[in-house]
Write a protein that binds this DNA or RNA. Structure first.
Lengths: 136, 136
DNA sequence: TTGCGTGCAAAGGTTTTGCATGGCA
DNA sequence: TGCCATGCAAAACCTTTGCACGCAA
């Protein structure tokens, strides 16, 4: 059965994920950061492990605006069915927003426009607070 | 200068675009449909021409949920700065919605979450009215 | 010892690019 | 005739897969 063994590679990947917190990352981010630390992990191992975690639901997998696959840790309590996501087009971070207005919006779209919104697939694009400050 | 010559390939691509209306499409859609008509146009020509139109702003270019590049005609009068887009995950149609609630949403995200929404890049994903009726 | 995990290399899929040729104007 | 446009093939990317070997339990 998958995910049975505790290997060096898994430990190192897990440590990367812990340090990364909620900031999103790509496969390259993982490979190069581990490489810098002198911890070599094969690219396919990274792909496979992240895929596994995504299936389990502990990380999110999505395409950014440029079509590159990105991953992000999902805190256990986080229920992505019922809130929305905003992606910053500058730094690429993905924010989870639990906001009543979103529910209002979904109801409105359904009632007045006949459109059934899917919160899991929808990503609001814009610029996050930090990046706005940086560019001032 | 680019876009100077009136060639067979451009005419055929343009005729595809006209028939396609507002429905989105991929490079493959173009290549295969033209092929079916017996009008062979090289794949790189399609890429190059669509890229050109996207730069001019007459079509939109974006990545769908699975990371495949999609294109869609943008009517001239359409001012996509000030309204929102909803994409149907079943039929792929892109709807332009001019709705006051969207402005409210943008203002709210800015004031309460510090996030500057970009209506041009944001696409709400869900199922459109027709597709919902079809699946009933 | 068993069989999951890993890494390499190769294959796949999509998009871009170099270059010789084609064909508008 | 001059020069943009085209198409092929190759390259460039990113991701997945096959397979033999490594290694945790």
């Amino acid at each position: 059965m998958r995910g049975e063994y505790n290997t060096r590679q898994k430990r190192e990947l897990q440590s990367f994920l812990n340090e990364r917190g909620l900031r999103q990352f790509t496969v390259d981010d993982v490979v190069f950061e581990l490489e810098d630390r002198g911890e070599k992990v094969g690219r396919s191992t990274v792909y496979r492990y992240l895929e596994q975690l995504a299936e389990q639901g502990s990380i999110r997998k999505y395409q950014n605006v440029r079509g590159v696959t990105q991953y992000q840790h999902v805190p256990e309590q986080l229920d992505c069915e019922h809130h929305f996501h905003m992606m910053c087009s500058k730094c690429g971070c993905l924010l989870h927003v639990d906001c009543k207005l979103m529910t209002t919006l979904a109801e409105h779209l359904m009632e007045d426009h006949g459109f059934k919104l899917d919160p899991r697939e929808t990503i609001l694009v814009g610029v996050c607070e930090e990046c706005r400050k940086d560019s001032e």
